[in-house]
Design a protein around this nucleic acid. Structure first.
Length: 490
RNA sequence: GUCCCCUUCGUCUAGGCCGGCCUAGGACAUCUGGUUUUCAUCCAGGUAACUGGGGUUCGAAUCCCCAAGGGGGCGCCA
């Protein structure tokens, strides 16, 4: 039975090593997962580090699940993270195209014919299968379904010779494939393992960098390379990202798993990218936060870790905060204004009238208080609207200590009588009253802050009062002063 | 069931290839104190880890073996 295709000798390394070609091959599913982003990133980094080529290939064979619309998610996510590709679909260029699997049918036919000619295929249930070489036998096994249910079944197995996977991260892994697998599905579409290998051969990919979940499947791929008489590429199976709590790898259903979430929460893409780099790799110079150019210079696959990593959003927030702090003023202002516009805060007619200078002043006050841009709108809403949100917990805390409205009532007459609305005058009134009452300054500051901002923190109170302007600030205080006293708690 | 990969503070990790410099270092988180009218920042300090058992060795986080635990594959998903 065995029609032997010559097993390729391991790369007869002639002359100079071929230029590195890596690829990222996502399936357009409508989601862009953190794990996918990190895989793309490592491929991109390695290509950039070596001066090689980074290829974007779209694995859209499973047509029922894929749609044009979903492609945009991939493009946008990659661009947001600052990854550019040298070859890919559309006008990206490259002479190894097409770069969408749905357009490569002719190539798959051609390669399937090679396998058929070599007698390595057979049909069963309408699908085309790859025939492993070796003694056949049947075995009973317990198989776990995707939903977790277990079932016993009898399967035909093959005693195939083990193959060795040369992996830059795992070392040499020996594994024997023990079952034939589908090349072309009954519906005529080629299957993942088949197209993946054909594409990597025809696109001259030199380094396959992907998640460790593919490590076991790699023996299938090597069987195919051998059957085609092709030299397998160098593999690098990177560790998986585990969910923050609970068991297993992060999946798209897990909280915080989608890149899109961090976009909408206004995380800075450079911070997210920097953090992703550290999930499974450590810079050699000891820094954690460093410019992408320095990461590219230091990145090497042999330094990638073997153990899986757990995703910790708190640490990423810290990165985000550091990047935010270092953002140039003009960049910050542009981003911040966009966020305020999108939140509908600057649409307000009054604000529009006050215009630019006012918004600039608000941003000036708020910036140093920000931990992330996602806090910008909630922390500055009271500068733009009268119906800003009042934080219930803060009010509750204040009321536990006394009657905040009463405090504001105490201050109000003196503030209303103030000839000048400046720091010194405000200080005199508030400080004077605190001294007279023999209480801490904050006994007055906190209720007043709540009255005008609805919050328990933020910029210096005087700065808020001055920026709001005398009349607006006083109006808010009067409203709050009229608040009924704390109901006697049960 | 079976095969493959992995195992240092709560989390991300340094160190391991070339055993002694490790009474195991850093970062995030957390706790304490200081600065700040508040909040955020910032500063100082603290708690906290080599999965277990054997072996090799004068000496093991580092080398070997076993176990346990974790992760993944075994799909006409990718």
């Amino acid at each position: 039975m065995s029609t032997n295709i010559q097993t390729p000798a391991t790369a007869p390394a002639t002359a100079a090593p071929a230029a590195v070609r890596t690829r990222f091959a996502p399936s357009p599913t409508g989601f862009f997962h953190i794990g996918s982003a990190r895989t793309a990133l490592f491929n991109w980094l390695y290509a950039r580090h070596t001066g090689g080529t980074f290829i974007l290939r779209i694995e859209d064979t499973d047509t029922v699940r894929n749609s044009e619309e979903y492609l945009r998610v991939i493009y946008e996510s990659l661009r947001w993270l600052g990854m550019d590709w040298d070859e890919g679909p559309g006008d990206a260029g490259g002479s190894f195209g097409p770069y969408k699997q749905s357009e490569r049918t002719a190539i798959y036919h051609e390669y399937l014919a090679k396998l058929q000619a070599a007698g390595r295929t057979y049909e069963k249930d309408g699908a085309v299968w790859f025939r492993l070489e070796g003694e056949r036998f049947t075995a009973r096994e317990t198989y776990k379904e995707a939903d977790g249910t277990k079932l016993d079944r009898v399967v035909e197995k093959v005693k195939a010779a083990p193959v060795v996977i040369h992996d830059l991260i795992r070392g040499d892994v020996t594994r024997a494939e023990d079952r034939d697998f589908v090349l072309v599905r009954a519906n005529g579409e080629p299957g993942f393992h088949f197209v993946n290998v054909v594409d990597d051969i025809t696109m001259a990919v030199t380094h396959v960098i992907r998640g460790e979940d593919h490590l076991s499947n790699t023996s299938k791929h090597i069987e195919l390379y051998n059957a085609f008489g092709a030299t397998p590429p160098t593999f690098a199976h990177i560790p998986l990202i585990l969910k923050n709590d609970g068991k297993g790898k992060m999946s798209k259903r897990d909280k915080g798993a989608l890149i899109e979430e961090y976009q909408t929460r206004h995380f800075l893409p450079d911070a997210v990218r920097n953090f992703l780099c550290l999930l499974g790799w450590t810079p050699t110079d000891g820094r954690e936060i460093l410019p992408i150019a320095d990461i590219i210079a230091q990145f090497d696959l042999r330094d990638v870790h073997q153990g899986n990593a757990r995703f910790d959003e708190r640490k990423m927030s810290h990165f985000n905060q550091q990047y935010l702090r270092d953002l140039p003023a003009d960049v910050f202002n542009a981003k911040a204004r966009q966020i305020l516009r999108d939140a509908g805060l600057t649409d307000n007619a009054d604000v529009a009238a006050a215009a630019d200078a006012y918004v600039a002043a608000v941003l000036d006050l708020i910036r140093e208080k920000l931990r992330g841009l996602e806090d910008l709108a909630p922390m500055s809403a009271y500068f733009f609207n009268e119906d800003f949100p009042r934080d219930a917990k803060t009010l509750e805390t204040l009321q536990k200590k006394g009657d905040p409205a009463a405090r504001v009532r105490q201050l109000l007459p003196a503030l209303e009588a103030l000839p000048d609305w400046d720091d010194a005058s405000l200080d005199a009134v508030i400080g004077g009253l605190a001294t007279a009452e023999n209480v801490k300054l904050n006994e007055f500051f906190a209720p007043l802050r709540f009255a005008v901002s609805g919050l328990n923190g933020g910029p210096h109170l005087h700065a808020i009062l001055r920026l709001l302007g005398r009349e607006r600030a006083l109006a808010r205080m009067r409203t709050f002063a009229a608040t009924p006293p704390t109901p006697p708690s049960a």
